[in-house]
Simulated scan of single mutants.
Amino acid sequence: MPAHILVVEDEEPIANILRFALEREGYRVSCAYDGAEALERWRALQPDLILLDVMLPEVDGFDVLRAIRQASGVPVIILTAKDDEVDKVLGLELGADDYVTKPFSTRELVARVKANLRRASDVLREHRENERYVVQDLVIDLAEYTVTKGGQPIPLTHREFQVLAVLAAHPGRVFTRDQLVDQVWGTDYVGDTRAVDVTIRRLREKLEPDPSQPRYVLTRRGVGYYVRNE
């Protein structure tokens, strides 16, 4: 069955352009035109990917993203104003997987959609010979797509899960930002490698008793990130 994409865009002409471009690629597409409707349709439809404009009436795109990330790791691509770095950074901090700036070409947007859908399960496929990794009292279960700490579930976005799984698969190995981008975001990712730092910070906030003194995901200054091999 083709992937189902939810387009959240308050300008109906733009939403229709996106719908047409995505349906032409064979995707199933649903649309929502404000934040409240977006949350209703997300809960009802459980789409495979969401295209989310950050400037929405009723409930803005950032609040929509916050609500989604409390319950789901569905890939989310935010649509932001051209060169609005604040929106890009905030979106990534809230758990967006990617962003596209307006005005954009539908060709670029479709390519981003394909890349994010393809990567959503890449970590599981790449490490399918191992069903779980254990890092101290963390258990990363690839089959269930879950992380527990001391037996208690830790809710992660799918991007956070992917980064942690890559690091846990190679304990003690230091990954540079560029290597993590290639492994998780993909070699066709054209965004900023600061997305890695944002994801690591969010992981530490969720996993570490004291994020300023991490025990699980560590930094090798000037090089990159790794997990303890003990």
Rank of each mutant, 00 (worst) to 15 (best):
R125K: 14
K82T: 07
K206G: 02
H4Q: 13
R69C: 00
L138M: 12
E12Y: 10
P209G: 04
E230M: 12
P47E: 11
V227P: 00
L138W: 03
L56V: 05
V134D: 10
S30P: 11
I14Y: 09
L18F: 10
E126G: 09
T101L: 00
I68Y: 00
L117Q: 02
D197K: 10
D137Q: 11
D122N: 02
V166H: 13
T146F: 00
T101S: 15
L207I: 06
C31H: 03
G172P: 10
V223E: 04
E85N: 10
L45V: 06
I50L: 15
V190L: 08
R112A: 12
I154P: 10
A32E: 03
A195E: 04
P47W: 06
V123D: 05
R118T: 14
G150K: 01
P209C: 10
A36V: 07
D83M: 03
H170L: 03
V166Q: 09
S121A: 14
E23Y: 03
Q70H: 01
E25Q: 12
W185V: 02
E9D: 06
L52T: 11
R107M: 09
V181G: 07
D122Y: 05
Y225I: 06
V29H: 10
C31F: 09
Y27K: 05
G172F: 12
E9W: 09
V8L: 03
P103L: 01
S30L: 07
D60I: 02
G186Y: 06
R215N: 08
H158D: 15
P75I: 09
E230R: 14
A71E: 15
E131I: 04
S105A: 15
K102R: 14
D192F: 08
Y33W: 11
L39G: 10
V7I: 15
A165F: 05
D97V: 05
D97W: 04
I14G: 01
P13Y: 03
F104V: 09
V64M: 08
R24M: 00
D182H: 07
R125L: 13
L39H: 01
D192S: 15
R28W: 01
E85I: 13
N130D: 03
R19M: 01
V223R: 12
I17T: 14
P47N: 12
A120K: 14
F175W: 14
V181N: 00
E40K: 10
E40T: 14
T146C: 09
N130F: 12
P47L: 13
E131L: 07
K206I: 00
D137G: 00
E23K: 14
F62R: 11
R177A: 11
E108L: 14
V181F: 10
I154M: 13
R220H: 08
V100Q: 13
L51H: 03
N16V: 05
K88A: 11
D98Q: 04
D141N: 13
V147G: 09
R194V: 03
D83T: 07
R221C: 04
N229D: 14
K206S: 03
A120V: 06
V110R: 13
D34Y: 03
E131A: 10
L6K: 11
V196Q: 02
T148F: 08
D48S: 01
K82L: 15
G73R: 04
T106I: 01
P209R: 05
A32N: 04
S121E: 14
D83F: 06
L52K: 08
P47H: 08
L22R: 03
Q70S: 12
M55Q: 00
L167F: 08
Y189M: 02
